[in-house]
């Protein structure tokens, strides 16, 4: 159960860290139907960071991620992304964010290539066809590129979903339970990809229910309890048992 994670700092990551905070929440609160989901949250995530958001069911993890993605507005307080206040109208900021959800967010009647090309076009990429090919290659799905994604297994779907989230080369990657429903090889492959992206300087915010896995992958863990930050520490100084007791208490 002991986690002693070591995270060597690569050159791109070191450069990213110098850019300062990518995410900053200021007195962020969110209520849904009168129930407080997040309360007065003040969190700062540096560029190039790999942060796991942990907590029990209903702790506000996914809500926080949806607010950070600008999909859902906060009830009060504000979020700053890349130094700018973010709202649903922050079109330019959204170019710098990628979102992986536990739902695949793909059009099932389109092929993997068509899905990727469609989103590449929406993001205004110069050569969407080449970019889609590159992402298919990265996902190991070039051979199945023309197949409708409705015929794909859960693991393959998730690989396309990740390629979709990365098609515009975002600086901030928000991942909400990305390992859900994946088999062991797919989990290992996704873990490797996230580590590789972080080494390349991308900031990763991971919401995950697997505490041990999160402590192994991320550099920092934020544990939410009742919509508030219960623990915010480097993963090298945290034990899964300790996090679990915070989640359960």
């Amino acid at each position: 159960m002991t986690q002693v994670a070591t995270h060597p700092v690569t050159q791109p990551k070191a450069e990213a860290i110098e850019r300062g905070a990518v995410v900053k929440t200021v007195s962020l609160s969110k209520s849904i139907d009168g129930r407080a989901i997040l309360c007065d949250l003040n969190v700062e995530i540096a560029a190039g960071g790999y942060v796991a958001i942990l907590g029990g069911n209903g702790a506000g993890k996914s809500t926080l991620l949806r607010i950070l993605s600008t999909l859902v507005p906060p009830s009060s307080g504000r979020i700053e992304l890349f130094g700018d206040t973010a709202t649903a109208a922050s079109v330019d900021l959204r170019k710098r964010i990628g979102l992986i959800g536990h739902q695949v967010m793909l059009y099932r009647d389109l092929s993997a290539r068509e899905n990727l090309e469609f989103f590449a076009k929406l993001y205004g990429l110069k050569d969407p066809i080449a970019r889609a090919s590159r992402m298919l290659e990265m996902s190991g799905l070039s051979a199945r590129a023309a197949d409708p994604v409705r015929n794909f297994s859960r693991g393959m779907l998730q690989r396309v979903a990740i390629a979709r989230a990365l098609v515009h080369d975002p600086e901030l990657l928000l991942a909400d339970e990305p390992f859900t429903g994946l088999d062991a090889p797919s989990i290992a492959s996704l873990e490797h990809l996230l580590a590789h992206l972080n080494d390349a300087g991308k900031t990763i915010v991971l919401v995950n229910h697997d505490i041990e896995q999160s402590l192994r992958l991320a550099e920092r863990a934020i544990v939410l309890r009742g919509g508030r930050v219960a623990v915010d520490q480097s993963t090298t100084r945290l034990y899964a048992r300790e996090v679990l007791s915070e989640v359960l208490s």
Binding site: S69, T70, L71, A88, V91, D92, R94, K95, I97, G98, L99, G101, Q103, V104, M105, L106, Y107, R108, F119, L122, Y123, G124, R164, A165
Partner: peptide, 16 residues
């Protein structure tokens, strides 16, 4: 709405 693809669409840098 299927597979929450609307969220991906809303995340794209396009005006609603």
């Amino acid at each position: 709405r299927n597979d929450a693809v609307l969220a991906a669409l809303l995340m794209a840098p396009i005006d609603r």
